[in-house]
Write a protein that binds this DNA or RNA. Structure first.
Length: 450
DNA sequence: CTAGGGTTAG
């Protein structure tokens, strides 16, 4: 990287930024043990479940096969991070050092990435520093993982420093991924012009910007509703023969929608079709949001239909937008069908929204459907609804019961398998619908319309 | 190791 970019980065990265600080994360310690923080009696049931997860996770780590799959790590760490249980994350990740995989750079980089995504930058950094003594080779891959950890933990000021010092110190040459990560960092900081200038630096260093570089910039400009700047980036991308994909179009769709330009968004999604760029669930959700905000029930439902027609899967966002909306519009037949679909696939709908549908069906004298829905909700294997029919006595309906309590949440594995077998999988080959995997993996939990 | 909206446990 040229010295001019060093200077620019340095200047940018040392300016105080206005981002709100993340919650405090613990400093790394050398302890691998997890001491109880509270007396047993005052430990909440949530915490009990998380402790069970930690225990189960460490036991599962003994399995070679478990360690090769990042998926279980992602799920567990995401849950712990959501609960702000950073010491638990430290516990399960530091535990991984006892396995021989730790001298494999890919494995260690995965752990750094998990720390980064949890906002635990210090831990990621410490792990990077420890790599030599863990007998783990450090290439540009781990350098990039460190940069990514900065971005994910919003420690933007560190990036300039690392870029200035580490390559020389460790004889590592930054590559295209390194530059793309810098672009992302500048975008997240709101320094969009500087982000675009990195393109020139890349070319000076003989790196051609790729689809990720351009999509990162497009996303930032469109989010900012800087349409004319975004169009310039788009033109540059095409002049470099980089072919736009779905993720180039989606930010533009969202920008048009949030600018109340629905018909232009519809035109754009049609253009995607003509150019052979397949719209995905993000594209359809953007349009559905537009029509929902416009109060247009028919169009919202029509685009829901397009999801299935285009071999796509609705996701939690789709349901969350549509269900309350169609209830408000009084279309309880549609609401009923949607609920039924969602529940039988073991997705969860918020109880309040379910109640909304049940009440609506009752009000329309569709008692049979209402009862069917209540039964469906109650018979759901993983969760329980407290749904009431008119005339039910208070408290008569079931109480919630937790996800397989002995299994510390690793039950997600099983439910993912279940979901994979169902939902729109009935219509698709498993391997060809990666998107469905993503949907199902994150939707075993509450689809959250309450 | 790099690009996704708006949220995510009782």
């Amino acid at each position: 990287m040229s010295s001019s970019l060093y200077r620019r980065l340095h200047g940018l990265f040392t300016k105080p930024n206005t981002l709100t600080p993340l919650p405090k994360t613990p400093k790394p310690t050398t302890l691998n043990t997890l001491e109880p923080l509270l007396p047993e009696s005052s430990i909440s049931s949530t915490d009990k479940r998380l402790r069970a997860l930690v225990k189960k996770f460490k036991a599962a780590s003994d399995s070679e096969r478990f360690r090769t799959r990042n998926y279980g790590y992602e799920i567990a760490v995401r849950r712990l991070a959501a609960a702000k249980q950073f010491s638990y994350i430290e516990d399960i990740l530091e535990h991984q050092k006892k396995y021989k995989n730790i001298s494999n750079e890919r494995f260690t980089v995965r752990l750094m990435s998990l720390y980064g995504k949890s906002g635990m930058f210090e831990h990621a950094h410490k792990l990077f520093d420890e790599m030599p003594q863990l007998n783990c080779e450090r290439t540009v891959m781990s350098f990039n993982a460190l940069l990514a950890a900065c971005v994910n933990s919003k420690k933007f000021d560190k990036i300039g420093e690392f870029f200035r010092e580490l390559p020389e110190k460790l004889s590592i040459k930054p590559d295209k991924v390194s530059y793309n990560t810098v672009v992302k960092a500048l975008c997240e900081m709101g320094s969009l012009d500087s982000a675009r200038e990195v393109l020139d630096e890349m070319e000076k260093n003989s790196f051609e910007p790729d689809l990720i570089t351009f999509n990162t910039l497009l996303e930032a400009f469109y989010r900012n509703k800087s349409f004319s700047d975004a169009e310039k980036v788009w033109a540059l991308m095409e002049s470099k023969n980089v072919v736009p994909n779905t993720r180039s179009y989606n930010p533009k769709l969202r920008a048009l929608i949030s600018d109340n330009r629905i018909s232009e968004a519809v035109e754009l999604i049609e253009e995607m079709g003509r150019k052979g760029v397949k719209p995905d669930i993000f594209s359809f959700n953007a349009l559905i949001k537009g029509f929902r905000d416009d109060g247009n029930l028919e169009e919202a439902k029509r685009w829901f239909g397009e999801i299935v027609r285009n071999d796509c899967c609705p996701d939690r966002s789709t349901v969350k937008m549509l269900l309350p909306f169609v209830c408000e519009k009084g279309d309880f037949d549609f609401a009923f069908e949607l609920c039924k679909e969602v529940i039988t696939r073991r997705f969860i709908i918020g109880t309040a929204t379910m109640q909304l549908v049940v009440d609506g069906l009752v009000k329309e004298s569709k008692m049979e459907d209402a009862e069917k829905l209540v039964e469906l909700g109650k018979s759901n294997n993983y969760f329980h609804y407290k749904l009431k029919m008119a005339g039910d006595q208070e408290g008569k309906s079931g109480n919630g019961f937790p996800v397989d309590e002995d299994n510390g949440g690793l039950v997600l594995y099983d439910s993912v398998k279940e979901v994979r077998r169902s939902w729109f999988y009935l219509q698709h080959q498993e391997d060809t619908c990666k998107q469905c995997t993503l949907v199902s993996s994150s939707s075993c939990r509450n689809i959250g319309t309450d």
